[in-house]
């Protein structure tokens, strides 16, 4: 559906796991880290998550920004908690955080958006009898992505116009025309969707 996204193409074991199973696995892992209280055990979980990265062949240029964020968080929270509480609980918090964020990012890197959408649609399938329409998820993703593309174009032209008038430093001079054109686009899109039968079968 979209070239946009954080997915890293690949054929590793982690890539091939079904999205739903992978998501459940990640939830289990995060739950385990909450239950574990020993820094050694949590360190082991962190190591397992870290091993997932070479296994999935995530390139270094994708790992590095994540690592930088994690290091920064670890230092800030570690120092704060050591000062407020003690070194042991600081270590536990940091290890929990690193393993949870590491696992979440690994899921995002190895799972195609289309597959996540399909998994959500399947998971919501049983709710169909209560009036939930799982097939709408994919539709909403597509509609919103197209709207992001359109609005990016509008934002760029609004910015150019502001620059032409020497107002590129004014947030209001950017936001007002951008918002006006956004809402007009919403009106036109509403008409187009209505003409294509949206809202006709309720």
């Amino acid at each position: 559906m979209t070239p946009l996204g954080l997915y890293v193409p690949g054929g590793s074991l982690l890539h091939r796991l079904p999205a739903g199973a992978k998501f459940l696995g990640m939830l289990v892992l995060v739950t385990v880290t909450v239950l574990l209280g020993s820094p050694v055990a949590l360190g082991a979980v962190c190591a397992v998550v870290a091993l997932g990265y070479p296994l999935a062949r995530i390139p270094w240029n994708r790992v590095w920004p994540l690592l930088r964020t994690l290091l920064l968080l670890a230092v800030v929270i570690g120092v704060l908690q050591t000062w407020l509480l003690d070194a042991r609980s600081a270590g536990v918090t940091v290890l929990r955080l690193v393993s949870a964020l590491g696992a979440a990012s690994l899921f995002t890197f190895t799972t195609r958006i289309d597959d996540v959408v399909a998994a959500i649609e399947r998971a919501l399938g049983p709710l169909q009898r209560f009036g939930v329409r799982p097939d709408r998820i994919g539709l909403l993703v597509g509609l919103t992505l197209q709207a992001v593309t359109t609005l990016s174009g509008i934002a760029a032209s609004v910015r150019e116009a502001a620059r032409a008038r020497g107002a590129e430093r004014s947030v209001v001079a950017f936001a007002v025309p951008f918002l006006v054109r956004t809402l007009k686009h919403a009106d036109e899109l509403g008409d187009a969707l209505a003409a294509r039968g949206e809202g006709d079968h309720r």
Binding site: G142, Q146, T150, A192, R196, G197
Partner: peptide
């Protein structure tokens, strides 16, 4: 409608037609 940008609702041409 007049403005094609607000009638195209999905990211690719094929998906947009399939939307109907």
């Amino acid at each position: 409608f007049t403005n094609p940008d607000s009638q195209i609702v999905m990211p690719t041409a094929g998906e947009d037609v399939a939307f109907s």
